[in-house]
Nucleic acid binder design. Sequence first.
DNA 1: TTCATGCTTTGACCGTAGCCGAAGCACGCG
DNA 2: CGCGTGCTTCGGCTACGGTCAAAGCATGAA
Lengths: 227, 227
Amino acid sequence: MKAGPDIARIAALIGDPARANMLTALMSGKALTASELAAEAGVSPPTASGHLAKLEAGGLIGQRRQGRHRYFSLTGTEVAAVLESLMGLASGAGHLRTRPGPRDEALRRARVCYNHLAGEMATAMYGALLRTGRLATTGDGPRLTESGAAFFSGFGIALEPLIRARAPLCRECLDWSERRSHLAGSLGRAVLARIEAEGWASREPGSRAVRFTPRGEAAFGAWLGLG
Amino acid sequence: MKAGPDIARIAALIGDPARANMLTALMSGKALTASELAAEAGVSPPTASGHLAKLEAGGLIGQRRQGRHRYFSLTGTEVAAVLESLMGLASGAGHLRTRPGPRDEALRRARVCYNHLAGEMATAMYGALLRTGRLATTGDGPRLTESGAAFFSGFGIALEPLIRARAPLCRECLDWSERRSHLAGSLGRAVLARIEAEGWASREPGSRAVRFTPRGEAAFGAWLGLG
DNA sequence: TTCATGCTTTGACCGTAGCCGAAGCACGCG
DNA sequence: CGCGTGCTTCGGCTACGGTCAAAGCATGAA
């Protein structure tokens, strides 16, 4: 017994409904203030404050003071990955009676996962990138190929600063709605930023959903060579 | 709020120390009786019984009656994957003061992850398989190539029954100690079985650790063409 | 300085959930 | 059949943890 790390500690941290709501809200990748998170979780400011302190002590979130606000965010992609996989279990093993509403439909299509794109569009993209040899996979996550480097440079992404930074360029992340992987890492983040800058899609305010315009969706498909 | 599935429900399920211990014990892949799990969790039989009922209602474990015993096991690899990723977070973000003992060291080297091999040896194997083209990766997890099929057949694994079964042949699973992927799925399971049948390694009783014999380790490396 | 806003701490309340002992089933065996 | 073992249900205890109101600190603005 006691083999392996103390998994109950952080599972319990996620296991409270108020805290789970906060973490889910933070999955949008945006840093949120304590009051916003309190509203999101449906609790009073004091309660939220206590929860946030626990989450921080547990290492799941971090804070950044700015002016008289306190911005909270997830500490990293690893936390986001755990949350995503938990959502996969909950949506699968949970009560299926709650059939997906229109809002869930949009989330399934495309959404923000911490800082990169997730959902149907994202797994389609990841598959296309691997099929066309822009990415290759080692045991240690995906790797950018030479043709891939040219491909993304042509899309307007400056790769050098990303490579110079110590954060991993490519990562894969399991999608709870699709049950397949999609692209994460600093490259995944850059792609999402570029898609938004291009005007192909925009985030719905107050939600994780990403809405593609019809023209944006067509351009996205053409870029990747999707059917 | 309420975007996405009810993650708090199952996180809370894992969040109790007694239940977490039970789940960790079940990560060995073996089906255990209620009394064994009670001992593992350090609680009385009545308490264990209550916990097991909750875990089953939550869809995390299933039971199989056999004689006058009741055998419990995890419901699937998806549950195991969540537990592994939670261990990754807990070992990283958790208190690092608990430096790894000799027992942890063995676990890091090679262990059972639900029904397949995990740890250093497993990620090395996965990397070698991808490097040599026995496996290729699509967006939808790894795929067995033709050369890979010949490779595993030559190792004494009958692929047809695995392919005929509806369970996925290849899956990847994130390793909490290595933070890299390793091979799961029915093929992963078959490989571990073959390794044990070959006498290369054996499971330590009452633990998840897998101990390779010196000769077994050498044979394993030669088989994969590791340095 | 003085006020207002954003957040945290304190203190008290309450509910829930874990825990066990004892009794109750259920199954298998002799 | 009746005994023993394995597991579950029941009752009641305890305590941990979530919750909010009110007061206490900060920080920035006037």
